[in-house]
Simulated scan of single mutants.
Amino acid sequence: MYKVYGSVASRAFRVLWMLEELGETYEYHDTKPQSEAARALNPSGKVPILVDGDAVLTDSTAILTYLADKHGKLTYPAGSVERARQDALTHTLLDEFDAVLWTAARHSFVLPKERRVPEVSGSLKWEFARNLDRLAERFVGPFLQGEQMTIADIICVHCLNWAFGAKFPVENERLLAYTKAMRGREAFKRVRALSEG
């Protein structure tokens, strides 16, 4: 059985959602970043952490890719043009959404106060809005690549939820409708319920 270490409020949400979509059983360990439990499995103290037997895997995207390939779901086959496009989309989301949001978080509360540059917030919100418009132009529907949900959808919706919470502009009607539909998925709701229980 898989074991997932992290908190629902972190990128561990992505891994938990993936496992719910796959219908795989897992043990969830509510573990804060930099905690003793996290450092025991990952010297950097970062979460999420997935334990599969003797293997300890880190980084949410690496974990999602591993699970998708292992179970042959939520991904296109390796070596296909569709997979190359999926990977390109995944990297775009990490670069243009996740990285922007993480930079904002670091300068809001993560870094020591004397190392923060709060003035960067306006620039990051502008960049995020520009990137969101570009993504909307590429959006096919009902999922990012059309008829098949992939790990890119999990990363995208997690980032858009993060953006809502961080008060970043998410104003594109098509992407708002997409996010609402994805949040309505039973697997998503089951993970959300972990933070409420």
Score class of each variant (00 low, 15 high):
132 L>F: 08
68 A>L: 04
67 L>Q: 04
169 P>G: 07
117 V>F: 10
149 M>G: 02
159 C>S: 15
174 R>S: 15
153 D>C: 04
75 T>K: 02
178 Y>H: 09
154 I>W: 13
127 E>R: 12
173 E>G: 00
117 V>Q: 06
84 A>S: 00
132 L>W: 04
163 A>N: 14
166 A>D: 11
87 D>L: 13
132 L>S: 12
101 L>P: 00
106 R>L: 14
71 H>S: 13
77 P>V: 13
163 A>M: 12
144 L>H: 03
156 C>K: 06
177 A>T: 04
90 T>C: 12
173 E>P: 13
163 A>T: 01
138 R>V: 08
154 I>K: 02
97 F>S: 00
109 F>Q: 11
137 E>R: 14
72 G>F: 01
73 K>C: 01
172 N>C: 10
178 Y>K: 05
67 L>D: 10
69 D>A: 07
87 D>H: 02
107 H>L: 14
134 R>F: 08
86 Q>D: 11
166 A>Y: 10
165 G>H: 09
94 L>D: 13
134 R>V: 10
94 L>E: 13
119 E>Y: 00
105 A>D: 14
139 F>N: 01
129 A>L: 01
136 A>I: 05
155 I>D: 13
126 W>C: 06
153 D>H: 02
108 S>Q: 10
162 W>C: 04
145 Q>Y: 12
167 K>W: 09
127 E>Y: 12
179 T>M: 10
127 E>S: 09
140 V>W: 00
